[in-house]
Design a protein around this nucleic acid. Structure first.
Lengths: 333, 333
DNA sequence: CTGAAAGCGCTAACAT
DNA sequence: ATGTTAGCGCTTTCAG
């Protein structure tokens, strides 16, 4: 008797039970205010009874808009991007949009595949932090997105592309603030572990630091790593093998700071005593382990709100011009 | 001249350029081996030229299968679940499946909404770690998923539901191993910070610990928190305010262990000296900050592989019976 | 406020 | 190996 095969539950079933046409049932889910309250109630009860859920595929196939925003993060395990993703999802939901969230795991190949998938899902806009911060990274899919007129909002990782909006951190200012703090602490000997040389983010942060410090301290050393922990760890290890510990290490992002910490602890250096650390980005888990590093912290809520607002504006008004917002970090002690 | 509106690029366009019928073009993307190599090449070139991407909505509307697995994680910021999500995505990709990954942020409401969305996307299976570990949590959507015959694979957070497969950790064994280790260290005075009393996971872990320790130590105290950091932190604080530090704290999951650590450090206790910690689950970031806590670590790769394998099997053979796999943790020092 | 018909882009099931 | 036909479940016209 009981059939074991998958029971598709469609709008038609709901409509039949509620004694209305398909389209009225449809409106109950997409524009409930255009349906008579009594009818609406009947329809929703019918839907509930048989467990109906709107078929997203069918909807976005037919509808002008899928009401969905795609989010591509390079590393959700990084609290900066993970936190951002969460807040963006909430903001989007508030604005009446669903989100499709993917982690590219810092791989260009993944990133390209994800973008393709998002196009396939007819997203109304894409919020994207690209995998690399290379200054001249110009992925192929960018042309395609322009052609398809899908708005793109870049977050944090900058690319200078006309049709892309952007929400960026004021990295130069981060460096300046960091530098000024170091001066206030009378730091004389400073080692900066930067991100990749060809990254905008890294370059600006370092430039800011140099601008503030140049001529006011005895020695500045700049080492280049990538934005992940391991290379920073190795760079710090290598430095400490050949030099005295400086007054301050500066980590140019949270992962780099972690690498510095790990290396210092490995070298039996008492952090905040033998050697200090200033981090651009908050340092993950530091307070739990009893450290209160001075840092530049970013207002994730503000960044998320800006990005989603831009996405929504451009999704709902395809003629809207791409904009650019710079969010300042603030000194946290 | 240049039209600013969104240019839909469809299979029909590709087919026209490549001089084939729609269906041949279709096959080029779904079953390339059934198309003559020359034809295939022509089609792919045409697609590339105009930036064609298969429309996922249309495909999953028509096709039997969307080739997509939904993954619902309760907290991607937790390295256990975040790592699992990453590995599952990779495994699924290897098996030829896309994934749709959502974070329920430990909220039942989010969870229900996500499941609805996944149903709407016609996923072939759902891999789910439910938000709560309450023993009698029976969310409404479960009935619906059974009705729709969508296979469900539960991971870590157990629910005793016939039509759901499961990949679980051997929590009793975790407790036993932990207990045996503590005995080997001649621990006499032990404080266990457990998860919620009504959680299977927490209960089994504690039971295992008790079984190993009972009668062999001077004192066991059990405090109940939830599976997040803050309550464990408060519980530990409260304990330390009124008692001497024990030989060992035992954290019943990684978040709890973090709470214990934070509290101990706050109380100026030298970890691994004044007081030790045994953690069930690896402790996030501990090695970076110079701590090597004994712990039970879980083979995420194995768990991910099992879950995806089950999902794929049941997705491709709807008659396949739900199975259950228990993965043992191993002692890490 | 409600409905009938058309069709979104794709693929299953037959052809050839 | 390739093509024809039909239709997935929904929403957009355009009508009442």
């Amino acid at each position: 008797m009981a059939d074991n095969r998958s029971q598709k539950v469609t709008l038609e079933n709901v409509a039949a039970i509620a004694n209305v046409s398909k389209i009225t049932a449809s409106r109950a889910f997409s524009q409930p205010d255009k349906v008579h309250p009594d009818t609406l109630k009947r329809i929703l009860e019918a839907a509930d009874k048989i467990g109906y859920v709107v078929n997203a595929a069918a909807r976005s196939l037919r509808a002008k808009s899928s009401n969905t925003i795609g989010i591509v993060s390079p590393d959700m395990a990084n609290p900066f991007f993970g936190g951002l993703a969460k807040l963006m999802t909430q903001e989007a939901y508030r604005a009446g949009y669903d989100t499709l969230l993917f982690d590219s795991y810092e791989s260009k190949e993944n990133e390209a595949r994800i973008i393709d998938k998002l196009i396939g899902y007819n997203v109304d806009a894409i919020i994207l932090s690209v995998v690399s911060a290379e200054r001249f990274y110009r992925p192929d899919y960018i042309k395609q997105l322009e052609l398809l007129n899908i708005p793109v909002i870049l977050v944090d990782r900058e690319m200078d592309i006309k049709h892309c909006s952007g929400v960026y951190i004021d990295n130069l200012d981060c460096g300046l603030q960091a530098g000024r703090y170091l001066l206030s602490q009378k730091a004389k000997n400073i080692v900066i572990i930067s991100g990749p040389e060809d990254s905008n983010v890294a370059r600006d942060r370092v430039t800011g630091l140099q601008a503030a410090l140049q001529g006011n301290v005895d020695n500045i050393e700049i080492l280049y790593a990538d934005f992940l922990m391991n290379e920073a760890y190795n760079a710090t290890n290598h430095y400490l093998k050949h030099h005295q510990a400086p007054d301050y290490f500066v980590g140019c992002n949270n992962q780099i700071s972690l690498g510095i910490i790990k290396s210092c602890i490995n070298h039996q250096l008492a952090l905040l005593k033998d050697v200090s650390l200033f981090s651009i980005d908050e340092v993950s888990y530091a307070t739990i382990y009893g450290f209160n590093f001075p840092c530049i912290s970013h207002d994730l809520q503000e960044i998320a709100w800006q990005a989603v607002s831009m996405a929504v504006r451009r999704a709902s008004d395809k003629a809207a011009k791409p904009g650019k917002v710079i969010v300042r970090g603030k000194l946290g002690l």
